[in-house]
């Protein structure tokens, strides 16, 4: 799909911060506010803007810490549907936070979230590896999240160090 320059500009702004008002977007891009609203609606309808989630660092909240594992999954693709069918069977589990088809030594990269290592072990042994086309799984537990979706988690160190007034 080809977009207009102003649609691309709107996406850039929303990707940075989706809470920006349409009025502000209009002013930044020298557009009419109604026009901005129309574009956003269109982009949502076309599935280009998928959702507006907040990035939350649950690890900071007591009792809400989650354990995340990245699981490399080898599968046997099926004639006619390739990897899509097995992918769907996996991503429909709410424990699965993301799923990518990869090139290289394994096929699917699955991130699984649970309250404990036991939760995750159980999910992998009982749900994931029992799917018939799954050949093998290799599980890596995540120890610390430094950066997620372009955002540095532990407070960006890029503070404003400029003097208040400079020539």
């Amino acid at each position: 799909m080809k977009l207009l320059q102003e649609q691309l500009d709107i996406l850039e702004i929303l990707e940075e911060n989706h809470q920006v008002s349409t009025k502000s977007i209009a002013e930044q891009l020298q557009l009419d506010e109604e026009e901005v609203k129309k574009h956003i609606k269109q982009l949502e309808q076309d599935g280009i803007i998928v959702s507006y989630p907040a990035l939350i660092d649950w690890s900071k909240i007591e009792g809400k810490e989650a354990i995340v594992a990245m699981v490399d999954v080898k599968v046997t693709p099926k004639r006619g549907v390739g990897f899509d069918e097995v992918a769907e069977r996996i991503y429909r589990y709410p424990e699965v936070k993301s799923l990518y088809l990869m090139s290289g030594t394994y096929d699917l990269s699955v991130s699984v979230e649970g309250k404990s290592m036991k939760d995750i072990a159980l999910f992998i042994s009982e749900k994931l590896s029992t799917i018939e086309s799954v050949v093998s799984t290799t599980t890596h537990f995540m120890l610390k999240k430094y950066k997620h979706d372009g955002v540095i988690m532990e407070g960006d160190k890029d503070d404003d160090r400029r003097m208040v007034i400079t020539p």
Binding site: R162, M163, V164, T166
Partner: peptide
């Protein structure tokens, strides 16, 4: 500019539109 720098430097909660960088 110096004078305003001195004046603004000691204040809390200043929004600066005075920075040339």
């Amino acid at each position: 500019i110096r004078k305003f720098f001195d004046l603004a430097a000691g204040m809390e909660g200043v929004i600066s539109l005075g920075v040339g960088e």
